[in-house]
Amino acid sequence: MNVQKALSVVRSLAPEAFAADWDNSRVQISGTRAEVAKLAVTLDPLPPVMAEALGWGADLVVTHHPLYLKPQPPTQSGQYLDVLRQFMAAGAWLYTAHTSLDCRPDGPAFWLGRALGLKDCASIENVQNLPAREVFFQAPARITEREARPLSEAPGVIAVSQSASGEMRVICEEQAWPDIAERLVGIFGKRPEFLVRRLEEPTRSVGFGQVGELPKALACEDFAKALEKALFSVQKPFPGGPRGVAWAECGPRPETIRRVAYTTGSGASLIPAAFAAAADVFICGDVKHHPAQEAPGLVFDVGHFILEEEMMRLFAGELGPALPGVEVRFFAGKSPFGYRVLA
């Protein structure tokens, strides 16, 4: 598959429009290869993992964490320069889907909510509201029902119609328009002259984290066991120790838990917003000492790694069917933390 086509598929599943303004969710290293036969997916662009992926023959590597957030000169020894040398020698591409993936509604970042059976979910903190696009064009032929159905069911499409005179009208989410335009060219065999305008309504809100309701209220310990079960299914054994899950707990325990908030990766900054959304518990990673002291409710710090490692494994599972003819492989990472288990 052409590398730009492969990148457009990745972008359709992690729209760059969803990314936070401080982030670097985009191509990190432009390669020289024109085609993608093998695509690797992993959490971190660490030199050993990149060496494994490139040794497998990856033409394109997709990570969650960026190689860099701000441009930097390749003058200092370290992981950045090591990875840059690896990719420049191989001619491969490196792409990052960071907050663009974190904020995709119903995406793999929200796997824990699905594992816990949360309902009536909403973002903890909105990042932005994205307008829709309304597209008009004169179609060269009538669109058949067989062609219209997959178009109307495509991700991001809100409405599709065609008048008796052949004029078509498509309303879609803004970030979906490039993919919809390609679909229309495929249907009609040539690119029509599109008239495109932004709509103030409807808009799509995207943001960090999620808060939702359990099917029924649980005692704290029963919820902890349910969470342990969800995490246990994806957690690796502790280095040199037994299988299991470890987390840190802070804040006052409620009698029961019904409303659950969580986010992948770091989450201490979202503690106030999570409890402002009436959460009974907040699950995240990387909580520091002072935010823990000030937590107004129960917080489980289950670690940065476990939530995002599973997210990227699921993302690889999405990319496989979306990239026909491309071999997609997930490369497992390793948490930088180990745990000493005391008797």
Rank of each mutant, 00 (worst) to 15 (best):
F110G: 14
F110D: 06
W111V: 15
G113W: 12
G113N: 14
R114E: 15
R114L: 11
R114T: 14
L116Y: 10
K119A: 15
C121T: 15
C121V: 15
S123T: 05
N126M: 15
Q128P: 00
Q128L: 15
N129S: 15
L130M: 10
A132C: 09
R133M: 11
V135Q: 00
V135F: 04
Q138C: 03
Q138I: 07
A139N: 05
P140R: 11
P140E: 09
R142P: 01
I143L: 07
E145T: 09
A148H: 06
L151C: 04
E153L: 14
E153W: 07
A154D: 03
G156A: 05
I158D: 00
I158Y: 05
S163K: 10
S165I: 03
S165W: 04
M168P: 02
I171S: 09
I171A: 06
I171W: 01
C172G: 01
E174S: 12
A176L: 01
D179V: 07
A181G: 02
A181T: 03
E182C: 11
V185C: 12
G186K: 11
I187A: 03
F188C: 11
E193P: 01
R197Q: 15
L199S: 10
E201H: 06
P202V: 13
G207R: 02
F208G: 00
V211A: 09
A217D: 05
C220W: 03
A224R: 09
K225A: 13
K229H: 08
K229E: 14
A230E: 05
K236C: 02
F238G: 04
G240M: 07
G241Y: 06
V245L: 12
V245F: 08
A246I: 13
